[in-house]
Every structure is written in structure tokens, then in C-alpha cells.
Design a protein around this nucleic acid. Structure first.
Lengths: 300, 300
DNA sequence: TGTTTATGAAGAAAAACTACATCCTTCAAG
DNA sequence: CTTGAAGGATGTAGTTTTTCTTCATAAACA
């Protein structure tokens, strides 16, 4: 017990099997370690791959100290034991195969490579979008939707599924929302909106005629607010929007740009959903509880 | 030696400590394993986190077989032993501690933090799904869809937008595909399918009555093939599917699990799209060129 | 010189692994 | 169809290896 207390005092590590990454924990513990223990830490940090394949005895030999010290070190650094340290280390060591290769796909790719490329491309798209996205624009959009009398979501073609997706999300929150993916109907509904209302437009290019025209109708007749999700900040759509949320995407041969950006559009919709949910949490929680009850009845 | 030879012959695994990812190796070995060994493989695949903290005895108990079988399995699957398997597994498992931001969102989060959390959660979901996804199942599904007489895509509720999304993608490839998100219509259309046809089902829980019933109708009346995208490998849906593609998702307070998995479902649809595109590249290229021409006419 | 603390040696405990016995399954001969 | 031999699959029990603990010794400091 005395020893345990000492170790804890020295390193300040509280919960074993702790919260920080293994390597960070090793480094962080370094200054407060006893000389013999520090030897272990240094050896492990310098021989990470080797350590994974070694036993306590081998590490002890490598670090020129006793086995007991290796074990003591593991505990001091906040691991449950030597095995735990190895597991923690392994989790951080990037699997060499996992590294993203985001060149284009090829018919020669085996299924596994293909999966990594496609998922990798989508992950890159999300990262790129996150980096270029203006969080305050999202916040403002959320605020506007949360306080709008009614929100009309529109999108045609490949953007229609995303509009649909956004609709199911906002609907869940219990806010007044409607969806139109038909060019004629969206224009009709837009014409009926007032200045308390809002149109949320999804359009990759931002240049598709139908949704832009619907927006213009809404603006002219009722003075509605407009939030758009698009890949093009210079587009006609952006020009008629109060808030524009921009996606970032790279085109590849088999996945046209429009396709790649959809995942980013969906993710922005997701972010809007969470943002609005937090702003209206009482209503949102009540709504999602009601929804869950109903859904359960629909299952086996 | 005899035993080692047998194992090698059965699995075709050559280099121990091998080159493929651990999870891929486990899955790849599955079909050629003995019944008792397969139990271990299934247990490990379904309890990856638990396995990392378990001893041979605990895994044996969990999989309801002997310790010896666990060890034998490790060798058959191409690992040096149980410890090696654990290390391999740890290397692939996304370190839950590494994505510190993954905790739940809070009303106190500023817009920027919120954006990072939501995008981060979605990126994690994609990573998790990629790690647990069986690429060969995707390949097989792609093959089946590419050669099917006709593919009916179904999904209700929150899965409907994803079904819609999958529809627009496959449609682009020029393959015969239809979409039904209405419970009655999907059942009617399913009843008309023949054994050359295929149903692609999207259902997060895999337990929603309507799509499963539609699949049963299709199976009974026409003997159609079934591919499903779901989060639950043990679901009623999986039980009636020829190929099941599994998403991985973690639930958080404001983003129910069903919502989190949608991005993974969309990404799998994306992967199917690319897979099929490569298999039918001539037709696919011709189709997308035609589509691009038409779309341009719809823009400013 | 006494006390505290760091370290290692040796042995206890636990885990991983092996050898073998038993129990199936299969298949061929009666 | 039955029987039994052969071979393979699996579990039991024992062996080896590895991890961890205890305690004695050595070093540091007062």
C-alpha cells in the first residue's frame, strides 16, 4: 500500500488503465520516474515495435535492469501490468497497412483495398469540410432554423436524398419542417412562405435551376430566410442565401465530385441537427422519446 | 508437424505474424475453420474489446470451448499464439482514448467544438465500420447486384433516405434498379420478383417488421437473392439475407445510434457503387457520361 | 550509524502452451 | 444394415513460460 501511494503521488496517475494515450503516459511519467524505471521507459519508447514482441525478461535485459523493475514501472506509469502496457502500445502504433492511400480506385484493387480507398476518401472529405467549415455560420443557421416559423427543405436530383435525410433529422426534433424534392411542388410551397419562414436548400453545384428559382420565388413573395448547403461559395445559390455552408470535396474518376460531397452534406445536416437539438433541448428530448416509443412497436 | 501442415493447407496462411490485418485474417479464416475453432473466431470478432483484456481461459469460457482450442485457433489463423493475436487486434482497434472529443456534446460547447465533435464522431464511425466490414462480403454483394435481373432497394423510416441515396447511385450505373420506401408498395413489388432478381435492404436495427416481411414475401414467392445493410448481425433481417453488410456505430445522447450509423450505411452504399462500377465499367462510364450531359442542361 | 528508499534475486502465481487420451465421424468390409 | 477400424476433432491434464510478489540487500541520506 505504501508503495502504491508513493507511485501515485509521484506520477499523479489516478485511474489505472487510465485515460491518456499509452505513449503520452510513458513520456509524461518520465521526469518523475526513479532512475532504474526511467531506463525502462526510455528503452520502451525507443523500441516500441520490439517491445510488442518481447517478454518482461527480454525488456529487462534490453534496459539492463531487473524484471521486477519492469513490472514496477508498468504500475507507476499507470498500467495494470506488462500485458496492459503492450496492449496500450499496440493500439497507438499505426498499423502500416492502415495508412490512407487515396489515389484513384482501379479494377485491379482487391476488395479490401477498395474498401479502404472509398472509406478513406470519405473520411478525407469530412476532414476537409470540417477544416474549411465556418462553425459560426453553422451556429447562426441553427439559430435561424430553431426560431423559424416553418422550415422548407428542398433539393433535387442527387441532392434529394440528402434533403430527405435532413428532413427526417429535423422532424425528429419536433420543429415544423417540410420537404419538397419535386421542382414544381417546391416552388408552389415556397410561394406560400412568409418572412418568418425559412428555406434550407441542398445543392452540390449551387447552380441547379429549379431550387434556385424556388428560393427566388420565396424571397420575392414572402421575404423568407435562406440557408444553403453547397460546394460552391460563388454559386448563384450562395448569392441568394443568408447563410451558406460550404462542403469540400475532391473528385475522382469513379466517384464524381457530386457524389463525394454528399457525405459532407449529410454530415453538415447532422451538425445542424445537433446544434438545433442543443438549442431546443427540452422539446428535442420529448420528441425523440415519443419517436422511440413508436418505433419499438414497429419491430419484431 | 503434421498438425501444422494440416492447418496451413486448410487456411492457406503462409507467413506467421502475417501481412493482412488481424480482423481480416480472422474473417478470412472463418470458412476453413473447424467448428470449435470457428466458435472462437466468432467470439473474438464479436467481443474484440473484451478479448483484449481476457486470458486464454476467459476466451475459452466465453466461446464455450477448451483452452487448447483457443490456442489451436490462434495458430490456424496465422498468429504466433494468443498474445500475438491480442497485439494484432489491439493495433487495429481504434483507441477509444485517442478520440477524446468523442464524449457527448454539451450545450456549453462553442460552435467550433461542436463541429469537431460531430464530424469526429462520424469519422470514428466510418473507421470502425471499415475495420469491422468484410470486404469480400461487399465484393460478393456487388457481384450479385451487377448480375441480378433487377434490384429492388427498400428501407423505411430513417433508413428511407439511405435507400434513396443508394438508388440514385446504382441508377447512375445504368443497372436495372427500383426503389420502394412505402411498406405496402415494397411488399407488392417484392412479390413480383423472380429468382434472378435481388432485394437490397437498408435497416439499422434489422428488426423492423415491414422490410423483413417484404423480404420474406420475395423469398417465398420468387426465391430472390437478398443483400442487407444493417448494424445487427444477429437480427431477423440478417437471418433471411444471403449477404449481410454490417455497420459499426456508437450511440451518444443526442445522436441516437440509428442516426450515427446512417453515415456508415451511406458509405457502404458508396462502396457498393464503386465496386459495381468497376465490375461493369463500360456500361457505367457510358451511363455517367449521358447523365452529365443531361444535368448540365439543368444548370445556369 | 541508523533509517529510509531503490533495486534485484528468487520464488509463487498465473497464464500460455503441449501431449495425449477420448470421443466422434466416416467409410469400407462383412 | 451393421460393425469396426482409421483418422480427425476436441477436451483434459500436465508442462513450460511468463508475469508478478516478496523479501533481502545495497545504496543514499541524515
Amino acid at each position: 500500500m505504501t508503495k502504491t501511494r508513493r507511485a501515485t503521488e509521484r506520477t499523479g496517475v489516478k485511474n489505472m488503465g487510465g485515460e491518456a494515450g499509452a505513449i503520452a503516459r510513458l513520456r509524461g511519467a518520465l521526469p518523475s520516474l526513479l532512475p532504474a524505471e526511467r531506463k525502462v521507459a526510455i528503452y520502451v519508447l525507443e523500441n516500441q515495435e520490439t517491445t510488442l514482441a518481447s517478454s518482461v525478461g527480454e525488456v529487462a535485459m534490453g534496459a539492463q535492469i531487473s524484471e521486477a523493475t519492469v513490472i514496477r514501472f508498468c504500475r507507476t506509469a499507470g498500467f495494470l501490468g506488462f500485458a496492459d502496457l503492450k496492449i496500450g502500445l499496440a493500439r497507438e502504433l499505426v498499423n502500416p497497412l492502415a495508412s490512407t492511400l487515396h489515389e484513384d480506385v482501379s479494377p485491379k484493387d482487391d476488395p479490401s483495398t477498395l474498401a479502404r480507398k472509398v472509406f478513406g476518401a470519405n473520411i478525407d472529405t469530412l476532414n476537409d469540410t470540417l477544416n474549411s467549415l465556418d462553425p459560426f455560420a453553422v451556429d447562426k443557421a441553427g439559430e435561424m432554423i430553431a426560431h423559424a416559423g416553418k422550415t422548407l427543405i428542398i433539393g433535387v436530383g442527387t441532392s434529394a436524398p440528402i434533403a430527405f435525410d435532413a428532413y427526417t433529422k429535423l422532424m425528429r426534433l419536433g420543429i415544423p419542417v417540410s420537404l419538397q424534392t419535386d421542382a414544381h411542388l417546391m416552388m408552389m410551397e415556397a410561394a406560400l412562405l412568409t418572412k418568418n419562414d425559412l428555406i434550407l436548400v441542398i445543392s452540390h453545384s449551387g447552380a441547379t435551376k429549379d431550387p434556385v428559382e424556388a428560393v427566388q420565388v420565396g424571397r420575392k413573395s414572402g421575404g423568407v430566410k435562406v440557408v444553403s448547403i453547397t460546394n460552391n461559395s460563388m454559386s448563384p445559390l450562395a448569392a441568394v442565401s443568408d447563410v451558406t455552408l460550404i462542403t469540400a470535396s475532391r473528385e475522382t474518376k469513379f466517384r464524381s465530385e457530386a457524389l463525394a460531397s454528399r457525405i459532407a452534406q449529410a454530415c453538415i445536416a447532422d451538425l445542424l441537427y445537433v446544434t438545433i437539438g442543443l438549442k431546443t433541448s427540452k422539446r428535442a428530448l420529448a420528441s425523440s422519446r415519443k419517436i422511440e416509443d413508436v418505433i419499438t412497436a414497429k419491430q419484431f
